[in-house]
């Protein structure tokens, strides 16, 4: 049970003057309960990759296999795989269309042929996870606040209980409170066994949460590893368009200046290390 991406390449506008290669020979796996961050600059191919995990785009070469089944155009299992792999686009609140939140949340279950009573139970559970009140169901999604609309949009995807959740810049446009609320919801899903693939250009945001990072540069896999491994490399060899956390930059510069501090993005442990170093310097 996993998503396997093998040697995937993707070319837009093939055989036209506008031909552009978006992805080149990218491979990685997503195992159940893992949190993968796909990080890259604008145009690095990360959004293309996200759409491939869900069968919205198909690789020009290479293959994407979800739970042992390969994705290809018009595959008979495409719809059931789309249920397994939830995909949240950037600004998901822009996809809301129904008159009530209930109808919005029933849309995906109906499409996937989930019986109504089961869907109802799922909706209740999902609302609770998103910390949304029952009475929101009868409201018009367009009456809600921006943060709540985002939650409803996410909930309307999570309600079919996908095993994998792919999110494209899920925190765009949220303030830090909204961001923190979202991350705690995602952590809840992860502990329940849902794998998370988060697509972002902001590496600082994902370091504390993800198990593994996939760094893309101009469509190529630049790096694949745990956050600790990734930052070691990124600090030495910067990748186009990626900005490291400032605390990490600071630690890196100090280390280059000869101070023995760990490469960390955690401000508390860096403070302790600096104090230790300074006292040993003085003594």
């Amino acid at each position: 049970m996993s998503i396997k991406v093998c040697n995937v390449s993707y070319v837009y506008h093939r055989d036209t003057p506008l031909e552009t290669v978006s992805l080149r020979d990218v491979s990685f796996d997503v195992d159940p309960g893992e949190w993968i961050a796909v990080v890259g600059h604008t145009g690095s191919g990360k959004t293309t990759l996200a759409q491939m995990l869900n069968g919205l785009l198909f690789p020009t070469s290479g293959e994407v296999v979800v739970d042992g089944l390969k994705l290809y155009p018009k595959a008979p299992h495409l719809k059931s795989l789309r249920r397994k792999v939830g995909l949240v686009f950037q600004y998901p609140e822009h996809q809301l269309f129904a008159e009530t939140v209930l109808d919005e949340m029933m849309y995906a279950p109906k499409n996937f042929g989930i019986p109504e009573d089961e869907a109802r139970r799922n909706i209740e559970k999902t609302l609770e996870l998103f910390d949304l009140d029952e009475n929101v169901l009868s409201k018009n999604p367009f009456e809600l606040s921006g943060g709540q609309r985002r939650k409803v949009a996410l909930a309307s995807i999570m309600v079919v209980e996908p095993d994998y959740l792919v999110l494209d810049e899920p925190t765009a446009g949220l303030d830090w409170k909204g961001r923190e609320a979202l991350f705690s919801i995602l952590e809840d899903f992860r502990t329940k066994g849902t794998a998370i693939v988060q697509i972002t250009h902001d590496i600082e945001m994902v370091l504390d949460h993800c198990d593994k990072l996939l760094v893309l540069e101009n469509g190529r896999k630049k790096l694949w590893g745990t956050p600790a491994e990734a930052i070691e490399e990124l600090a030495e060899k910067p990748v186009k368009g990626l900005v490291l956390p400032e605390v990490l930059e600071f630690a890196h510069s100090l280390r280059n200046a000869g101070l023995n501090v760990p490469l960390t993005w955690d401000e508390k442990s860096l403070l302790e290390a600096i104090e230790r170093e300074v006292s040993s310097c003085i003594s």
Partner: peptide, 19 residues
């Protein structure tokens, strides 16, 4: 009601320790 960036926090702590 706003969140302080981690580097600001570190900066303030280093200053208060006279570093």
């Amino acid at each position: 009601g706003i969140k302080e960036p981690p580097l600001f926090k570190l900066w303030r702590n280093l200053k208060s320790r006279g570093l």
